[in-house]
Each structure stands twice: as C-alpha cells, then as structure tokens.
Write a protein that binds this DNA or RNA. Structure first.
Lengths: 342, 342
DNA sequence: TTGTAAGCGTTATCAT
DNA sequence: ATGATAACGCTTACAA
C-alpha cells in the first residue's frame, strides 16, 4: 500500500533477497556489528549483493532504533566573524572524520533556545555552544543532551576555553610597557564570558599598574568591524585622547584601525591598537595588527573531540579541560606612547 | 523489553494516555495535518497534555515514515573565505525560517562525492553546491537528490549564478580606462566555473581592446590571501612589471595588496589592484579595495529558496534563474597607469 | 470524529 | 551461523 511512486532506494531487504538470506542477517553484516558471527561465504555473498545494488544504509532508520543521529549541532553567534568561522571549520573537520554530520546554527544576539529545541527534536547526539550569552540558556534545555561549551563560564557542563583573562592582561601589560597611560577599551555590552574575561584581565592589569581611567575610555560597541570603527571615531572626540586602545577582538580592532587611518592619525605613532584572536587578516592589514593569539582551530577541534568522546562514553561527562594559553604577538600597530622615552 | 534506561523523552503515546485519546489522534493534532477533523475539545485537551508533558516531536521518526529529513546540505570549498561564509550564512537563515536544518560540508579542493553519499544516507531533502570543481561530480550522484548549484556551469540542474564574465570584463575595462596596458591576472588553476568565467571575461575584454599579454602575466595561485601575496611577489620579479593586477577574488587581492605594501610599492601609484566579491573586508584595508561587487547573501538566499520550492513541489525542477548582475566599485586601489595622462 | 492497524528501514533479542 | 519477531515513534489509510 504505497501512495508514493516506489522509491529507487535500496534497502537491506532488497539486498537480502538478492543474496538469498534474511534481512536481519544483512543488517548484521553491513552494520559492522562486531558481535556478528557470520560464515565467510554468506558474508561475501551479502557484500557482493550490496555492492551490485549500490546499497546505502538509511541512517534515519538507524537513528530511530538507536536513538542517536550521529550528528552534532554547533551554535555560534556569527559565522561571518573569521574567528567563529575557524572554530566551525575545525569542528566540521573533526566531526566528518569521526562520521558525524554538523548542523549549523547561527544564533546572532538572540537566545539559542529555539535552536536547542530544534536540535533536540532531531535527536542530536551533542551540541557545541560557542560564546552565546550564557544567561540566556536555561539549564533544563542543556541537561537533556550532551553539551560542550566553548569559552563559557566553567560550571556544570564540560567545556574548553582559552585564558581570556590573561589575554586582556597581556594586552594591557604590553601597552603599559610602551609607556601608555591613557588606554581605552572597545568591547560589547553583551554577556559573553570570554569577552567579559578579556575586559576584566585588562582592567585588573591596569589597576595593578596604578592606572585609573575615565569612564569615557570604556566604549561599548558590537563585536563587528563597523562598530569598532564607529567606536574609535567617538574616542577621537575625547580630550585628552587615549594614546592606546585594546579591542575585544580583531574584527573590532581592524575597524578601529581603519578609523584611525581615515582620520589621518598615525598608527602606532599617535595611537596604538591591540586586538585579540589573531585571525588571518591581522597580518594582512597595514600596519599589521598587534594582537593576542587565540587558538581558534584547536578550540573547535578539542571541543568536537571532547563531545564525541562524551557521546561515545569514553570520557567523564564533567571533564573540564584546562584553559588554553594565549600569547600576545607584537606587530605593527603598537609602539611607544607619544612623547614617551621608554 | 527495553535495554536502555527508560529515556525521558515524551512520545505521542504519553500524550495520548494523558489526554485519554488514541496515539494517532495525537499525531493528527500535533503534526498540524490539515486533513485532521478533530473536535475542538479533544484538540484542546491534547494540546494541553502535550504542553504539560513538554512534548517535543521526534523528527527522526517523522523522517522515516515520510522519507524526508527537513534538512539541507550545503557544500562549499572553504568556509573560512568570507564570501562563502556569507553564502552559508544566508542559506542557514532562509532554511531556519522555513524549518529546515543545514548540514555543513567543507569539501576543500577534493571531490564532494564523499559528502554527497553521507548526505544521501541521511535522506537529505536537498543539497546546495557552491563552487566545487564541476567535473568532479558524477551525474548519478546528483540525480538522486534535489540539487541547486551556485555559480556553476548551467546544465541539467537548477542553479543560481552571478554574471562572472561581466565581472572580469568590468575589471578589465576599468583598468584599461585608466590607461593600463600591462595588466596581470592572479587566479587558481582549479576548475571552478565562476573563476573560469571571471578570467574569460577579463581576457576577452583585453583582447577587444587590442591588448595582448605575455604568459608570465597569468599567475596561478590558490584562492587564498597567502597565495595571493606570494603570487604578487612573483610578479615583482618580472621585467617589465605589470602596472595593474586583477585578482580572481578579494581574498587574493588583499594578499596581493599586502605584498605591494610590503615591497614598498605605491598603490595605486605604482600598481593598481582590482579584486572581486566585495567582502566586508574590502573596505577595511588601506587603501580600500577596488572590486566587483557580487551579491553573496542574495546568491545564498535565492539558492535556498529555489531548493526549498523544488523540494516542496512548488517550482519547476529545471528552473534556471538569470545571472545576477555584478557591478564594479571603484575605491582606492585603482588609478591611472604610471605616466599616463588620461 | 476517532480508534485500529499497517508500515517506514533499521537494530536487537531471541529462538533454532 | 542464521532466521523469526519485535521494537523505535511516527504518519496515514481505513474502519467504526
């Protein structure tokens, strides 16, 4: 009783018929089940029949019976940001190697709850969540699936993260060492943990050096190049102007750099700029961007491997990796403070 | 007879029990089946029960019975190229709005056949393929699923594409109008249709202007910034040097620009550079990149909508949209040829 | 209007 | 070593 035209799809039943065995036997052979004790002859016959018919297993049917989809979800705020593109790319690579598909979710500024529901409905095996507002995710949504968080507040879920606080501190120390005393920060207001930590590390290092700053030196801007540019413009209106700026990531820093050049300010002569991430682009702008190198691909790769190990029961679910180290890379956008002799 | 611990997953059966109806009735109500003629009271009772139990449908089971996964595949060569990230982003957006998931496949230089098989096994509803080597895809792999090609040779599969030949021609005309006569091209050797067409349009326009060039002015390089930089360095070794370069895309152009600046060459005073795509970055380098604007997001959005319409039987399967127009945006990296008075 | 029954293509638990 | 048989959770005739 089929209402559709007979699908050209070959099933285990077709293979069984051709090989002259029962359907479950075909499954036993073709699903690589190690428990299978099948005589070499029948096994060969089945494999031959499968190849002749160009059999391809229906993963949906397998998923239904196994309650696993062999698929991973990855939720990021914005894949046009090269950093997230790197993370996603490495997740996809690891996943593909291990036989998992990757479902892409671009959550934007909004809550990922909608995506989590959709993934749950697809019996997703696990989800990687990178840099979404932590407060917006409800615990019960996360508890019903395997989750690995990237650059989030360490808590009850396993995660991988970079030493974001150190990133901010290194940026501050670098600028302080160049004699800067009027240092601004450009970063978003949203509650993304790694951004928060970069900011905190930065302020703490300044405070430790006895530097306190007017509140106008803290500029809130979305983590995009366009907003970075606008933020830098607003800093130019200040008196006294900062002599250096730390930007929450490279995209913002490149926007800020552009604003400086457009305004005729000399970088790093008049103003120094430090970014964070070390995206490929950092070395393609002129002058090349001084930034804190964050291992994006390793972050994604580790997250994917941790998640897959968790799914396959090979790792403690609550495992939390140590913070990945970050290191400042001094390039062309940072230099001595104007008038400083150090 | 369950071997696993009882899953906390709520099924239609649970809802049916709580609402005091049969399981199929629940399905009828909850799957929004328009054929359903259910009394308002039972309907309300079922919906209430579903909400109380926090029922979420199992899409895998639905997929099995419907032979549809409500998922799309997208195959791109390189997710880290901002152009493809844009395409993927817009595909994801449209797909999410229409209730489809997106499976990401980063094929690299290699053949997408492996990914096509994997997607087929997942009963994918359709696949979008952007700029993979057309020759490497076998017809029978594509014939068993819905396909929309982006920027590929028009043929038996529906697709959307930009007017790549015009892009090359506009770049050439722009440089010719500035008085350039020694014009180089940097582009990959691989068989990607839109790259080929950009190149062809470029050479044809030069020929039409009576300009012929030494073969060293054609430099083969992968479509990455790093390779663009290396390619430009090799052009510097030539005598006479070209006074202008057309790069197959912006990433290459930005690499080339970097090489010029590093070598102390003045852009556009000594050498003009024209890219193609108009990625966001084009306006963030200094000088800003002259390039041909290609509507990446529209390309992705159209492809996704065309594919979904095809899947849902609302469009002629062989529909081929007209070429999307492209337009050159003159910015800071192009100018009069050295010594030219035009 | 609603319940009954069949089946989607697998995997897994039994027998034999 | 292999074949019946029963799920997995849902959709969809068809019967009542």
């Amino acid at each position: 009783m089929q209402k559709r035209a007979p699908s050209p799809r070959v099933t285990t039943r077709d293979v069984a018929e051709r090989a002259g065995v029962s359907q479950p036997t075909v499954s036993l052979v073709l699903s690589q089940n190690p428990t299978a004790r099948i005589s070499p002859e029948t096994r060969a016959r089945i494999i031959k029949a499968a190849e002749e018919l160009r059999y391809s297993p229906n993963l949906v049917a397998r998923s239904l019976v196994r309650s696993r989809s062999y698929a991973l979800g990855i939720i990021v705020p914005d894949f046009r940001n090269p950093f997230f593109a790197d993370v996603v790319s490495s997740v996809e690579r690891v996943a593909a190697e291990e036989g998992y598909a990757v479902l892409l979710c671009e959550a934007g500024e909004s809550s990922p709850a909608k995506y989590l529901d959709a993934l749950h409905a697809r019996i997703i095996d696990g989800v990687i969540i990178d840099a979404v507002g932590a407060s917006s995710v409800h615990a019960d949504l996360l508890d019903r699936t395997n989750v690995v968080l990237i650059d989030q507040l360490p808590g009850r879920w396993p995660g991988v993260a970079t030493d974001a606080e150190s990133a901010g501190a290194q940026a501050a120390d670098h600028l302080i060492a160049f004699g800067h005393r009027r240092i601004a920060f450009i970063g978003p207001a949203i509650d993304v943990h790694s951004f928060r930590m970069r900011e905190r590390g930065f302020w703490n290092a300044l405070r430790a050096a006895g530097i306190s700053l007017p509140s106008e030196y803290l500029v809130r801007a979305n983590a995009t190049a366009l907003d970075g540019r606008a933020a830098m413009r607003s800093l130019f209106a200040l008196d006294p102007r900062p002599t250096a700026v730390f930007c929450v990531n490279d995209v913002v820093a490149i926007g800020a750099l552009k604003a400086c050049i457009a305004a005729g300010a000399h970088v790093p002569g008049d103003i120094s700029i430090v970014g964070c991430d070390d995206i490929e682009l950092a070395q393609l702008v002129t002058p090349e961007l001084t930034t804190v190198k964050v291992p994006a691909r390793e972050l994604g790769g580790r997250a994917a491997r941790l998640l897959i190990r968790t799914i396959e029961g090979k790792a403690p679910g609550k495992y939390l990796g140590r913070l990945l180290p970050v290191v400042l890379v001094a390039r062309g956008t940072s230099g001595p403070a104007p008038g400083d002799r150090s």
